[in-house]
């Protein structure tokens, strides 16, 4: 039951983009069209889940055991960079269809702060192994959800007449603000 609550909370209540401000760069850069936003979101979900598992193992079985948590940042970022590389090679070899669908988005994920943010939050909140996995999947799906909503809105916005200074990222930010206002309605629904 607690896991289910955590799952729902990380999708909508503590949405990574709209309430934690993690992963904003791709959110503004790649949310122009629905058919690129959704694969990006799914690629993030995939890497997030893998990261949640591997960083939990490294953090609890190596860094904390050896009493050197100050190496967390260096270790986490190296794990993420390596992981993304491995996932890319694995998909290229065994699931070429998925590899083509993810395309350029996979290598871009290394510098997405949502991934490192996930690893850090997981260490900060001291989740156990199952909770970490659920947190990873939920956060990824939440990310995909807000990417998809944003892309849908931006596709519509292309047809409208926007004042010149607001064109480009400025109007995207304002729209994100309104979306965040809508998501604020969920806050307090589940408190963990």
């Amino acid at each position: 039951m607690k896991l289910l609550l955590l799952f729902i909370a990380s999708i909508i209540v503590n949405n990574f983009i709209l309430s934690n401000f993690l992963g904003i760069c791709p959110f503004i850069g790649v949310s122009k069209r629905l058919d690129s936003a959704v694969p990006m979101g799914l690629a993030v979900t995939f890497v997030m889940t893998m990261t949640a598992v591997i960083t939990w193992i490294i953090n609890h079985l190596i860094l904390i055991k050896l009493n050197m948590p100050y190496l967390q940042y260096v270790a986490f970022i190296l794990v993420i960079a390596t992981l993304v590389q491995f996932v890319e090679m694995f998909l290229k070899k065994f699931v070429p269809g998925l590899y083509r669908a993810f395309g350029i988005y996979l290598p871009l994920i290394t510098t997405n702060c949502a991934i490192l943010g996930l690893a850090l939050l997981e260490a900060l909140k001291n989740y156990n192994f199952m909770e970490s996995i659920v947190f990873g999947v939920g956060s990824g799906l939440g990310y995909t959800l807000s990417m998809a909503i944003m892309a849908g809105i931006r596709e519509q916005m292309e047809l409208s007449n926007i004042p010149k200074p607001f064109q480009g990222p400025a109007i995207t930010l304002i729209t994100a603000g309104i979306l965040a206002l809508a998501f604020m309605g969920f806050s307090g629904m589940i408190s963990l």
Partner: peptide, 12 residues
């Protein structure tokens, strides 16, 4: 969060 997005968008 909403205020953050609004301020950033307006300043930009």
């Amino acid at each position: 969060p909403t205020g953050a997005f609004f301020t950033y968008g307006t300043l930009m």
